[in-house]
Simulated scan of single mutants.
Amino acid sequence: MNHKLTPSTILFLTIAPLLWAGNAIVGRTVNDLVPPVMLNLLRWSIALLILLPLASRIFRRGSALWTNWRRFSLLGLLGIGLYNTLQYLALHTSSPINVTLVAASMPVWMMLIGSAFFGVSISRRQTIGAVLSIAGVLLVLSRGELRFLLALRLVPGDVLMIIAAIIWSFYSWLLTLPKDPPEIRNDWAAFLLAQVAFGVAWSAMFTVGEQIVGPQEVSWGWPLAAALLFVAIGPAIIALRCWGLGVQRVGPTIAGFFSNLTPLFAALMSSAFLGEMPHAYHAVAFLLIVGGIVISSRHR
């Protein structure tokens, strides 16, 4: 793993949060058109159909997909089934700006999980940076008012995104493990399809549960079709590919810094498309989070 940030790596790690910010905006706009869990299933089912002609060979008998099915099933569960479902659920009670700002705590979780489960040590500088980042997240959760923080009044969407950030951190660290055979690791379409195939299966199970708990109808039409096409190609296939490349090149901790660009992009898009202007506390929170990650990412 080369920890040097090359121009191409920076580009990959910038494209992903840009598209994820768009995913948050679109996910909020289609709230009334499709249930959140079903939205995730439809999104990744379209991605599956797009990837299928490019790497269908991985489904043949005896391929590396089946010999490594436990790993790809876990990656599909964490990165596709759970993380994205939780994000769409969060957007029902929280704004795209808040959802992406809370998710910006992800680098902190990556450091903690890397230390606890993957043997990566945390320096004093990283600890200081983590405190600053957590302070930024608490500022978002409190809506800039101390009384809300003291009363622990959390919007359900904020809590869901904290859980989602922890799940994505585990997913990102698992990407760095050298367990994938060359026939899949060296073929980007095969690597994505192996995860998406299992992710769609998990998402289908979650969708069945959603319909059992509270059946909801889908408002089919061109607006929903356009939204599904965007979230399937951009935030799904392209972003996941770019993120995987970036993580494999520089590791989850450094790559995690770039995830903090997502709330900045989301704030700009919310202002342009949803009329949800960011508040002063959003700016302060963003500076705290980014400042914390910059400090924690520096080597002694």
Rank of each mutant, 00 (worst) to 15 (best):
P7I: 07
L13K: 06
P17W: 08
L18N: 09
L19S: 06
A21F: 04
N23L: 07
A24G: 05
A24D: 04
L33G: 11
L33P: 09
P36N: 03
P36S: 02
V37R: 00
L39D: 08
N40I: 01
N40K: 13
L42F: 02
L42N: 03
R43S: 12
W44Y: 12
I50G: 06
L52C: 08
F59G: 08
F59I: 06
R60L: 00
R61V: 08
S63D: 14
A64P: 13
W66Y: 15
R70G: 05
R70T: 12
R71S: 13
R71A: 12
F72E: 08
L75H: 05
L75P: 06
G76E: 11
G79C: 10
I80P: 05
I80T: 08
I80L: 11
L82H: 00
N84P: 01
T85H: 12
L86W: 03
Y88L: 14
L91A: 08
L91Q: 06
T93L: 10
T93H: 15
I97K: 01
I97S: 03
N98V: 03
L101T: 03
M106Y: 01
M106E: 01
V108G: 09
V108I: 10
V108P: 01
W109L: 07
M111P: 00
L112N: 02
G114T: 09
S115E: 01
A116H: 02
F118E: 06
G119Q: 03
S123D: 00
S123A: 13
R124C: 06
R125G: 00
T127W: 00
A130M: 15
A130E: 00
G136M: 11
E145Q: 03
E145M: 02
L146K: 01
R147Y: 00
R147S: 15
L149R: 02
L149F: 06
V155N: 08
P156A: 07
P156S: 10
G157P: 09
L160E: 02
I162F: 02
A164M: 08
A165T: 07
I166D: 15
I166G: 12
I167F: 11
I167R: 04
L175F: 13
L177R: 10
P178D: 14
P181W: 03
E183K: 04
E183I: 06
E183G: 08
R185I: 06
R185F: 03
R185Y: 02
W188F: 15
L192S: 13
L193Y: 11
A197T: 15
F198L: 07
Q211R: 05
I212S: 00
Q216C: 03
V218M: 11
G221F: 07
G221A: 09
W222V: 14
L224M: 04
A227L: 12
A227R: 14
A232M: 03
I233Q: 08
G234Y: 10
C242M: 15
G244Q: 15
Q248G: 04
I254C: 01
I254H: 06
I254R: 15
G256Q: 08
S259V: 01
A267D: 13
S270D: 14
S270P: 13
A272C: 04
P278L: 04
I289C: 05
I289P: 05
V294T: 12
S297M: 13
R298C: 02
H299I: 13
